[in-house]
């Protein structure tokens, strides 16, 4: 049974899945002096949206369509060369899976918990959670691409004491692009159902990957990634 409100429950920043502990690379970019204000935050989010966001959206949509979680997880590994980011994605996946199983009990979610004791990549779990909630691939993709920018925006508010109104306005300006990226993600996920996971997008941001390893080596940091 599908309800629109289920999407709000899943996408809510207060959904207890641990995302608040991660900055999506914003902490490294702030320290490197690449994010200094609302304008550079918006550019950071735009870049993340079209790279990691597109990939996450396509993985989530493919999982929501019923693609094999193991194949999707391996595809996520290949698209995530940074081991710090692979670890973060699995940790987030495990936390989301716990919350999702309690919220929308399903045999598919139980099976993923058994197959990936250390956690599957978060976007794959997100897609399966959407499926368990009776949502479709479009919903899963929108959730994933929105998370790819909302996390860094929230983190930057804390890191730079940025005015939260300005951060939220940046997200609102990105909204039309979020829709377009979600559409591309769903189209790619449908292609992947026919052609296999190689058809999923593999867009990457070199500074996200390199910055994640730099960040992981700091002795003290505010965010886990």
């Amino acid at each position: 049974m599908m309800t629109r409100a289920a999407l709000l429950v899943l996408a809510d920043g207060r959904f207890p899945a641990g995302g608040h502990a991660h900055s999506g690379g914003a902490e490294a970019a702030v320290k490197a002096g690449r994010i200094t204000d609302a304008a550079s935050l918006e550019e950071f989010c735009r870049g993340r949206l079209h790279t990691a966001g597109l990939v996450a959206g396509a993985l989530a949509a493919a999982a929501a369509l019923g693609a094999d979680p193991g194949e999707l997880d391996a595809a996520a590994d290949a698209r995530t060369p940074s081991p710090a980011l692979r670890t973060a994605a699995r940790r987030l996946g495990r936390q989301l899976l716990r919350a999702a199983r309690a919220t929308w009990p399903s045999l598919e979610l139980d099976a993923v918990a058994r197959e990936f004791p250390k956690g599957a990549h978060q976007p794959v779990v997100l897609g399966l959670a959407a499926r368990a909630a009776g949502l479709g691939p479009e919903d899963a993709a929108h959730c994933a691409v929105y998370e790819s920018v909302s996390g860094p925006a929230t983190a930057t508010v804390r890191l730079l004491s940025l005015d939260p109104f300005h951060a939220t306005a940046a997200l609102a300006r990105l909204a039309p692009e979020l829709d377009r990226v979600a559409d591309r993600a769903v189209a790619a996920a449908r292609r992947a159902r026919a052609e296999g996971v190689d058809a999923l997008p593999a867009a990457s941001g070199p500074l996200l990957e390199v910055g994640a390893e730099w960040h992981a080596a700091w002795p003290v940091r505010l965010f886990a990634s």
Partner: peptide, 8 residues
Amino acid sequence: GGWDGPAV
């Protein structure tokens, strides 16, 4: 978009 920005 964003290819020359702080994430890429």
